[in-house]
């Protein structure tokens, strides 16, 4: 999935990426907006910036994200 700036997403599961940290478990189920996708090369491995509703902005791996609307 290529994520675009402004897309609404859901953190639907824990990531299997090494960058996933324990405190991120609390984010599962939250909705947010992609604020800074990979702006250099559309790399599915890149960490991308997501602003979560009421829970701050975090750089997360892409495998835990699912688009929920435009």
């Amino acid at each position: 999935m290529t994520f675009r700036q402004g897309q609404k997403v859901k953190i639907y599961r824990r990531s299997e990426d090494e960058s996933w940290e324990d405190y991120m478990e609390e984010f599962i189920g939250l909705h947010g907006i992609i604020t800074d996708p990979d702006t250099s090369k559309n790399d599915p491995e890149a960490l991308i910036e997501v602003s979560l509703d009421e829970k701050g902005t975090h750089r997360l791996p892409q495998d835990c994200l699912r688009v929920i609307g435009q």
Partner: peptide
């Protein structure tokens, strides 16, 4: 965010 008077705005929460 449970104390309504002390909840930061979404813009502030979103700012890294």
């Amino acid at each position: 965010g449970h104390c309504p008077m002390l909840t930061p705005a979404p813009c502030q929460m979103a700012c890294p």
